[in-house]
Nucleic acid binder design. Sequence first.
DNA 1: CTGTTAGCGCCTTCAA
DNA 2: TTGAAGGCGCTAACAG
Lengths: 302, 302
Amino acid sequence: VNEALAERVHTAAARLGYTPNLSAQAVARGASSTVALLVSDIADPYFSSIAAGVIRAAEREGMVVTIAVTDRKSAREIQLVRLLRGQRPRAIVVAGSRFTDDADRATLVAELQAFVGTGGRVALIGQGELPFDTVPIDNSGGARLLGETLGGLGYRGFAILAGPADLVTARDRTAAFAGALPHPPLAVVHGEFSRDAGYDAMTSLIDAGLDGIELVFAVNDVMAIGALAALHDRGIDVPGGVAVAGYDDIPTARDVTPALTTVHLELEAAGAAAVALALGAPVQELPSVRVVLRESTPARSR
Amino acid sequence: VNEALAERVHTAAARLGYTPNLSAQAVARGASSTVALLVSDIADPYFSSIAAGVIRAAEREGMVVTIAVTDRKSAREIQLVRLLRGQRPRAIVVAGSRFTDDADRATLVAELQAFVGTGGRVALIGQGELPFDTVPIDNSGGARLLGETLGGLGYRGFAILAGPADLVTARDRTAAFAGALPHPPLAVVHGEFSRDAGYDAMTSLIDAGLDGIELVFAVNDVMAIGALAALHDRGIDVPGGVAVAGYDDIPTARDVTPALTTVHLELEAAGAAAVALALGAPVQELPSVRVVLRESTPARSR
DNA sequence: CTGTTAGCGCCTTCAA
DNA sequence: TTGAAGGCGCTAACAG
């Protein structure tokens, strides 16, 4: 193109405040420059970290990301992928869900497959058994490692705040942790994946009596922090009265008192890896999980 | 339309996995069903709460939201509104920024105005002096109230972790808090708006000597939590050695030890109000700020 | 390298 | 109520 002309066009465009219409581009090309992301709850640090990674990676590829929140309802999730499909995004990234209802899962898979059928790409974060590219979140391995580590520290009697009974992530963590210790858990309390549910679960545990329970494992940090609050409110010292461990290593885990032992996950990297996977970009190997020992679970002399 | 035919069409659509192409709709209609949201950092609880509100409200209106993160860089912010403008969103919601560089602000305003010129709507969250609809975040009022309350509790000598020097939000909070107390601050430390910056600022304050400082006000909770960690690491008791207060009332503020006194903001409601404002929907009155007194600032006997 | 053309999938208008 | 036609802003394939 003529240099001078291009110059004139550009200045004119700037003066008029022109911006290419991405929707029109998308229609003409048959593919948009959008990545759609589905999370359970954007205010949850677990998901906002993932979202940060997704957005960062997408922007690096010149794409913009649209986010929808499922509120942990599988019906809503299905409805939302249908809606998002309407945008003809280049890729759909799904984080969360993993519900065990077979019917719901089947419709979700069907919807996603229809999307793939029209040339879309899908990437999942941490839900192994679905037939799509997946960035694994190591639930079993980390929980086992945590269990072994704490067992090695001398902990024996334990309880688990196990989260939602129908959430595969929660079940995997529960089972792997319990399996790593010599005896079965003295108690397993279910509830939502939230701080308040952790508080309530811990409270009910206290009310039922903590006899023999040296350690409480909450299957995520948010619940563990709720448990810490409950213990604090009931005047039970941590780790003196009972030790507490969580999972995820969200930023606040190190800022509560006592600092929370947990399993570190590279959530932001996982988000970035998911878009790389979906966009066919080179995907970095994810670092493996590691146990982060902090003050909430000191070595136990016995 | 013929009932039976409509039925047949719908089932056929379902069978084929058809979804209306929203981009094509957008092109044909000249307006998409998208709300664009600009935040500084989606992993920051301040912004993820706002985002949650924006998404919730947008979904209620049947719109989808695309999020971009500015990383607190005004150049990036300008570049991003230009990019997002390409989507022809129905509205652009900007949370954050408020930088004091006049040139940057002017270009941002120009870009936003160009968007309005093409029929777009814009709503800002908490940045009073720009010529667009704004959901106010009460920085001065809350900080003054906090200052008065703590003054009433008996606090005198104080320091401020003031955040970025060029951020209006931070400056407003600093000035209003200081203005509410009889004496000027004994120290004002600047730094980023992050946990680690709060930690560092507090550390430098400790190193400089805490003589006469009874209270440290961090202009946001994230920094206050960093300050708490620094004090803890240096073995200084809170509130015994020094009291600490923050701003925003992020969820973790109540879960740190000691629980953090702060100013409660309805962030999610603010996000929802912004989309209501932008979409011309009925906008709920925002509740006014309120001081939340917790254990980090007990009444001071003197 | 330039200018022209058809067409992307949908909406809207108008006529039937 | 239904069908046909034109156009939204852009891209891609083509001829000049």
